[in-house]
Structure formats: C-alpha cells, structure tokens
Simulated scan of single mutants.
Amino acid sequence: MTEERLRVVLAEDSVVLRDGMAELLAVRGCEVVAAVATAEDLVAAVAAHRPQVAVVDVRMPPTHTDEGVRAALRIREAHPGVGVLVFSQHLEASWAARLLAGGAAGVGYLLKERVARTSEFVDSLRRVAAGGTALDPEVVGHLMRARRRSAVDALTPREREVLALMAEGRSNRAVAERLSVSERAVEKHVAAVFAKFGLLASPADNRRVLAVLAYLSETG
C-alpha cells in the first residue's frame, strides 16, 4: 500500500536550502505545495493551500529576528488543523514555550544541526501532521529549565526561606524552630512550593528531594 503524500508548505529564506529541502522532501514522498522565503508569504501560502504541515525557520526577513516563529503562532491560531514544525539553527526557548502553550498536538521544534538523516526529519513531519509532537531533546531541556526558573521566581520570600532550609536537610519541625513559626505554617509553605513546582504526590517520588533539586539547579 502506497503511503499518502504529505502536503507541505516550506518557509526558508535561503534559496539554496529551500530548493534542496524541497527536492529531498519530494524524493521522500512529500508534496511541497509552496516554498516561500518570507513569513508573510508563509501565512498566505498556508491559507491558500491548506497543507497538512508547515515548516518554518525562526528568523526570517526582513529583520531576521523572530518573524518566522510569529508566523507559526498565527498559523496555529488561524488554522489549528495544520501542523507546524519549526526547523532552525536557533533555539528560542521562550518562543517554543509560546508555541506549546495551547497544547503540544501538531507542534514540532527541531534544530538543523542535530537532524542526522532525512528519514528522521520526514518521520517528524508526518508525526506533527498527524497531531503528534516532535521536539529536539535540547529544546525539551531548555523548556524544563525555563519552567523551573519560572517556578522559583513565583515563590514568596517566606517560601524561599523554607525551601532554602529544606535544602540544608532540615525537617519541617527544624524549619519551624529556625523561623519561629508553627510547624503547621511550615507545612502550608511546603505544600505551596510543591504546587508551584508542579510536584504531585507519588509513591515513586520524594517531592521534598525533587523540590530541593529544582531549587538548587536554579540558584546554585
């Protein structure tokens, strides 16, 4: 049984890379319905051709800053059924987080220098087109670190104090004695820390240890 040809819109400002990618994708059973050089042309091409997936670089003309990923967000909003795969040499964790904010279905973010084979890239394209996710491990790592930084920043001064004392290996009772508060108050602060770090109760994990590790990784 012949595999269905994947309809792709390709956005890449380098004509050499754009033409080369279009040829490689065609060989791998994809139909590049449009290959464009700018973010505005990308948005227009998606609206006109309604592909299954759009491939876009982060930085595109005219400023080569974030036009491509802004266009990806517009496509996600206007055409939620179209998968979006960011394919770039630039890792922008904040933009990756915004792309994933509405859900990870149909989103990919791959780094050009880390894709070893065309077959892997096409497999990722098909996965994103089908509503799946394709994220480079380095992108995931940056997102997790950004999430931990955000969680630490969200702590109140008292919660930071409690967590810092937890990091010293102190029990709730010892923390309460050090801060001259009730043990019950410390328990409430610890629960708030767990909630802000997204640490749910699990028999397999020690939330106290995980919270301390997250805190130390961002403040150490």
Rank of each mutant, 00 (worst) to 15 (best):
V16C: 04
E138R: 12
T156Q: 03
V33L: 02
L10M: 11
Q89S: 15
A97W: 02
R145W: 10
R170P: 08
R149G: 06
A167N: 08
R208S: 14
V33N: 02
V53K: 02
R76Y: 00
V16E: 06
G108W: 01
G108N: 04
L111V: 08
G132W: 01
P137C: 09
G83D: 01
E113D: 13
V175N: 12
P157D: 08
A48H: 07
L17H: 13
L216E: 14
V152A: 11
E4N: 10
L165K: 14
L199S: 07
V86E: 03
T118F: 11
L6C: 06
A44S: 14
P62A: 08
S150P: 00
V115M: 09
L210A: 13
V58E: 02
E4A: 13
A211M: 12
G68L: 04
V43P: 11
A174L: 08
V190G: 09
R184H: 10
R207N: 15
M144I: 13
V16G: 02
G132H: 03
V175A: 08
R160H: 15
T65M: 14
V27L: 13
V69S: 06
V15R: 13
M144A: 14
L42V: 12
R170N: 14
A211C: 10
A37Q: 12
L73M: 15
R160E: 15
K196Q: 04
A195T: 06
F194I: 01
Y109M: 02
A26P: 01
D153R: 14
K188E: 05
G68R: 04
Q52Y: 00
G103R: 02
A134W: 00
S150T: 08
A195M: 03
E92L: 04
V58W: 02
N172M: 14
L111K: 07
A164D: 14
D123G: 07
R114T: 13
V175L: 12
N206A: 13
V55G: 02
L73W: 06
D19F: 03
A195H: 08
A48Y: 05
R5E: 15
R76A: 01
M21W: 15
E92H: 03
S150G: 04
E168C: 11
V53P: 02
G169R: 12
A105G: 06
A39S: 15
A97G: 05
R70S: 14
D123L: 07
